[in-house]
């Protein structure tokens, strides 16, 4: 008996006396929930779907989000927009850098999850490393892309005329299906560093990393509501992602031509931006560029009246 004590636990027998029984410990499994407004609720619909790997082993029960979860997420994203876009660009970069730090610290967990979802160890390690590097890459761009894409424009009148990029607002994103972590990070990062907030639908068949990534976000000083992550079926949610009047842009990362056509049509309702990333190879250098940031920016041009500088001899 002495030897089994480590594995034993106390239980109470029928006559109320504690007795020692030896039993295998039950593993505590993670409930994969969605991420809305800095909280981890279950879907309001109460629905779920089963995620399996290629061998058919059940990995998890995952929330099958409904349009109402999306509605709630947009509400959270809209609420977070003014605070997030009002932060100094440098500060947004710091927060993104912090996300990279957190991701680095939990590398092992992401590698394990990717391997559960049919990746090899080498591939999984590479994907996680690339995801971390990509966050650092965009953290650096955060306070630099404005200079690059702004301009002072020559005009015929006595105006100081300049154009600057500004965030478009709330962006709904249907993330890439294949690169479940790297793809997710690569579409979220350029959107939020420009001051937008977003609602993301994670990869349908490989959603585990997305939910774990939400835990990284949640411990990175990222204000609640800036990034909201749902799990579910693109076929069911795509039309809601694109026809919500309070969404300013939609990003779609697959090549389903029916969905693309539907998105083009429905986006007209409030002339929102539609961006398709269906041919991008996220695991190459092609997957990162400041031009991804500009896809969800609006250019604001200001005409500022001035005196005729040359004529008046003003001193600057």
């Amino acid at each position: 008996m002495e030897k089994t004590i480590k594995k034993s636990s106390l239980s109470i027998s029928a006559n109320g006396i504690e007795k020692k029984t030896s039993s295998k410990r039950l593993e505590v499994l993670k409930t994969y929930k969605i991420y809305i407004g800095g909280q981890f609720p279950r879907t309001e619909s109460g629905r779920y779907y089963i995620v399996r790997n290629a061998a058919g082993t059940q990995l998890a029960n995952v929330c099958l989000s409904s349009r109402k979860d999306f509605r709630d997420a947009v509400l959270a994203a809209r609420g977070a927009l003014s605070g997030w876009s009002g932060k100094a660009a440098f500060n947004r970069g710091q927060i993104l850098y912090r996300m990279a730090e957190m991701l680095e610290g939990r590398k092992a967990q992401f590698i394990e999850e990717l391997m559960q979802q049919d990746s090899t160890k080498a591939k999984a390690e590479k994907e996680v490393n690339l995801a971390i590097d990509r966050l650092i890459y965009y953290a650096g761009w955060c306070d630099k892309f404005q200079q690059l894409f702004s301009s002072v424009n020559p005009v015929a009148t006595s105006h100081f005329n300049f154009s600057v990029p500004e965030p478009t607002g709330v962006v709904s994103i249907i993330a890439p299906q294949a690169d479940s972590l790297l793809g997710l990070v690569s579409v979220i990062a350029p959107v939020i560093i420009g001051g937008n907030t977003c609602v993301v639908l994670a990869s349908e068949l490989k959603p585990l990393c997305a939910v774990t990534f939400a835990e990284v976000i949640n411990s990175s000083d990222m204000p609640g509501g800036v990034i909201n992550i749902l799990t579910g079926k693109p076929g069911e949610l795509a039309s809601w992602f694109v026809d919500h009047m309070d969404v300013n842009a939609t990003i779609y990362c697959e090549s389903n031509s029916d969905i693309q056509k539907m998105m083009r049509e429905k986006s007209a309702i409030n002339v929102k931006r539609i961006v398709f990333y269906d041919k991008v190879k996220w695991n190459t250098n092609e997957g990162q560029s400041p031009y991804f940031i500009m896809d969800t920016q609006e250019i604001k041009t200001t005409w500022h009246p001035i005196e005729n500088i040359a004529g008046s001899g003003a001193g600057y």
């Binding site: 509605r71 947009v74 809209r78 809601w240 026809d243 919500h244 009047m245 309070d246 309702i269 409030n270």
Partner: peptide
């Protein structure tokens, strides 16, 4: 059938 935005 479309969710609305306050600015309209």
């Amino acid at each position: 059938g479309v969710y609305q935005a306050a600015n309209y």
